[in-house]
Simulated assay, not measured.
Amino acid sequence: MKLSGPGAPTCPAQAAHAAAPAGDIASHLATLDQLRAAGEIGDEEYRVRRTKILDRL
Results as ranks from 00 to 15, higher is better:
residue 55 D to M: 03
residue 3 L to P: 01
residue 31 T to E: 02
residue 1 M to L: 14
residue 36 R to L: 15
residue 47 R to A: 08
residue 11 C to I: 02
residue 8 A to R: 04
residue 57 L to W: 00
residue 38 A to R: 06
residue 17 H to K: 12
residue 32 L to N: 09
residue 9 P to Y: 11
residue 11 C to Y: 01
residue 12 P to G: 04
residue 6 P to T: 04
residue 5 G to W: 06
residue 54 L to N: 13
residue 18 A to L: 10
residue 56 R to W: 12
residue 44 E to V: 12
residue 16 A to R: 10
residue 35 L to C: 10
residue 53 I to G: 05
residue 54 L to C: 10
residue 35 L to M: 13
residue 47 R to K: 02
residue 30 A to S: 03
residue 25 I to M: 07
residue 8 A to V: 11
residue 28 H to N: 14
residue 53 I to L: 10
residue 41 I to R: 01
residue 39 G to D: 02
residue 4 S to D: 08
residue 38 A to T: 04
residue 57 L to I: 05
residue 14 Q to C: 07
residue 50 R to L: 07
residue 49 R to G: 01
residue 8 A to G: 06
residue 2 K to T: 08
residue 46 Y to G: 04
residue 47 R to P: 00
residue 18 A to I: 07
residue 50 R to T: 08
residue 17 H to Q: 14
residue 5 G to D: 06
residue 45 E to Y: 05
residue 3 L to R: 08
residue 56 R to T: 15
residue 18 A to V: 10
residue 11 C to T: 07
residue 38 A to E: 14
residue 16 A to N: 02
residue 6 P to I: 04
residue 44 E to F: 10
residue 9 P to M: 11
residue 13 A to S: 13
residue 42 G to L: 08
residue 44 E to K: 11
residue 27 S to K: 10
residue 23 G to W: 03
residue 57 L to D: 03
residue 9 P to I: 08
residue 10 T to S: 13
residue 2 K to M: 08
residue 9 P to K: 12
residue 54 L to M: 14
residue 32 L to W: 06
residue 43 D to C: 03
residue 51 T to S: 11
residue 33 D to T: 06
residue 13 A to N: 11
residue 48 V to F: 01
residue 26 A to E: 14
residue 39 G to P: 01
residue 34 Q to D: 13
residue 29 L to N: 11
residue 27 S to C: 11
residue 44 E to P: 01
residue 45 E to L: 15
residue 47 R to L: 02
residue 31 T to W: 00
residue 42 G to W: 08
residue 22 A to Y: 00
residue 50 R to H: 08
residue 38 A to D: 14
residue 1 M to H: 13
residue 47 R to Y: 00
residue 27 S to R: 13
residue 56 R to M: 15
residue 21 P to W: 03
residue 14 Q to F: 01
residue 37 A to L: 09
residue 49 R to S: 04
residue 21 P to N: 05
residue 35 L to K: 12
residue 54 L to V: 11
residue 47 R to C: 00
residue 4 S to Y: 12
residue 16 A to C: 04
residue 40 E to M: 13
residue 10 T to Y: 06
residue 18 A to R: 13
residue 29 L to I: 14
residue 7 G to W: 13
residue 54 L to I: 10
residue 7 G to I: 14
residue 42 G to A: 11
residue 48 V to N: 01
residue 13 A to I: 14
residue 13 A to T: 12
residue 15 A to Q: 05
residue 52 K to A: 12
residue 14 Q to D: 12
residue 43 D to F: 09
residue 55 D to Y: 00
residue 42 G to S: 09
residue 31 T to F: 02
residue 18 A to E: 13
residue 57 L to T: 05
residue 36 R to G: 10
residue 29 L to T: 10
residue 41 I to P: 01
residue 11 C to A: 04
residue 40 E to H: 13
residue 34 Q to P: 01
residue 28 H to D: 15
residue 15 A to G: 03
residue 11 C to F: 02
residue 17 H to E: 14
residue 25 I to H: 03
residue 4 S to W: 10
residue 17 H to V: 05
residue 12 P to W: 11
residue 33 D to M: 07
residue 55 D to W: 00
residue 16 A to V: 07
residue 34 Q to V: 05
residue 13 A to K: 12
residue 57 L to P: 00
residue 25 I to K: 03
residue 38 A to Y: 02
residue 55 D to G: 04
residue 21 P to L: 07
residue 43 D to I: 06
residue 10 T to L: 15
residue 23 G to C: 05
residue 45 E to G: 03
residue 14 Q to I: 01
residue 29 L to P: 08
residue 46 Y to K: 03
